[in-house]
Design a protein around this nucleic acid. Structure first.
Lengths: 246, 246
DNA sequence: AAGTGGTCTAGACCACTCT
DNA sequence: GAGTGGTCTAGACCACTTG
């Protein structure tokens, strides 16, 4: 009776027990068994279900917390994470006056197009698949500050192709979640620099050729699928960002 | 015999046992008892010394790993972390040609000055204290790419005020560690955009008024003391940086 | 072979939240 | 008070590194 389990490798090859447990739980989340906002079973029940000690299950859940899949609240429970918190573009820009408040949003253009190669690559679609393209201006205290170009897979965002854009929220991600059950879980922002062309400059009330910061964002849902591809431009002189290295 | 210890609060008020253990160990590191590169005692010995269970001590050590103070290597031991790994300025710039290699460094100017207010604030010194100011050009494949202005507390860096700068290393942090036992443990980089003045432009072979990315760095040692304040400028069109949000 | 950190267990008790 | 996650313990065994 010396052994029947308890190897560093559990059921998976080359993975610790808690790592493969985390993998299994992650699959139950991405498969939709537990949806964003929903509670997972209590840790001791999960441990019992999987036939592991409580400590091992806690290790697995810790991993999922690190990876941003779940959130644990002392006394309340364990929940699938809802959405991104700190994804605002304003953490890249500092405009005098408007501090803190949400910029108002104006949709300048909306159309359904066939995905050009660069966009298709970004969104993980085939070239030519239908996509929804938005041009959007964001204003603070009435002044135009950020100009955005967004590309969305039409298959997922069809309801946004026909309605009244004036009624849209100023923040898109909460609207995606509310109206389409699309939860942005992770994003990658690539920061670069460029000069405004004539049209961009006009929208931002700046002279053509004015330097601008460019943020290219790819946003992903829980399953790792890219759900939005966005380019944001704003006055380079308003750009600032702080990185901590350890 | 129901109790004599084992409260969530150990010896410190409002802190868990492992958190106050971590605090105590951190103090032994920052006080210099264990210096960068040195090995800590084995975890079971530490646990015994502090009269806690092994698991509790492991929790404390995990915290110190997260905070960047120590590094644990399976089978070898636990060590005070040496220096920063990913602090290179090149993670902010992409120049064609030179990929990966370390830029060569040329000291353009070196002098001892009295700290102006802005620098004194950055370095945590009193206004007027002596500081070493460097102007430094960094080249890749013979082309000037980055222009830097560095401010160092003279009290710590005196040996660098008189020697032959041509013999300096291309990378400063390893040189600080080797020659002065100053280990950069943490840094804060603030990114912005600006325009080159005439002198800066000349050094970088760019026209005056050309847009540039500006990185202001404050670098700290283990004790949290600011040991270097630096401004780096490079062609804005070569700037790029990627941020992941979760 | 000895010493190190990493994994896993089984169980007790504490702290927080909700009803 | 019942249910949740958080802390702590004591001990076994595994995996990696070095002599």
């Amino acid at each position: 009776m010396s052994s029947h389990l308890q190897l560093a490798t559990g059921n998976e090859p080359g993975l610790s027990r808690y790592a493969s447990l985390a993998q299994a739980l992650r699959a139950r989340i991405t498969s939709g068994e537990w949806t964003p906002g929903a509670a997972l079973p209590a840790e001791n029940q999960l441990a019992q279900e999987h036939g592991v000690a409580l400590g091992t299950m806690r290790r697995a859940l810790e991993l999922l917390v690190e990876q941003g899949f779940i959130e644990r609240i002392h006394g309340r429970g364990t929940f699938v994470r809802q959405g991104l918190s700190g994804a605002t573009m304003l953490r890249f820009f500092r405009f005098d006056g408007g501090t803190g408040e949400v910029p108002t949003s104006r949709i300048l253009d909306r159309r359904v197009l066939n995905a050009p190669p660069a966009v298709a690559r970004g969104l993980g679609l085939a070239v030519g698949e239908p996509v929804l393209r938005l041009h959007r201006l964001r204003l603070m205290e009435g002044l135009p500050r950020l100009l955005e170009e967004l590309w969305l897979p039409h298959a997922l965002f069809a309801p946004l192709a026909d309605d009244d854009t004036a009624a849209w929220d100023d923040l898109l991600y909460p609207m995606y979640a509310r109206r389409l059950q699309i939860h942005v879980h992770r994003a990658r922002d690539e920061i670069g620099f460029s000069l405004l062309n004539a049209s961009q400059a006009q929208h931002l009330n700046l002279p053509p050729g004015h330097p601008c910061a460019v943020v290219e964002r790819a946003a992903f849902d829980l399953t790792g699928r890219c759900v939005e591809w966005r380019i944001t431009r704003g006055d380079a002189h308003a750009f600032h960002y702080t990185v901590h290295i350890t």
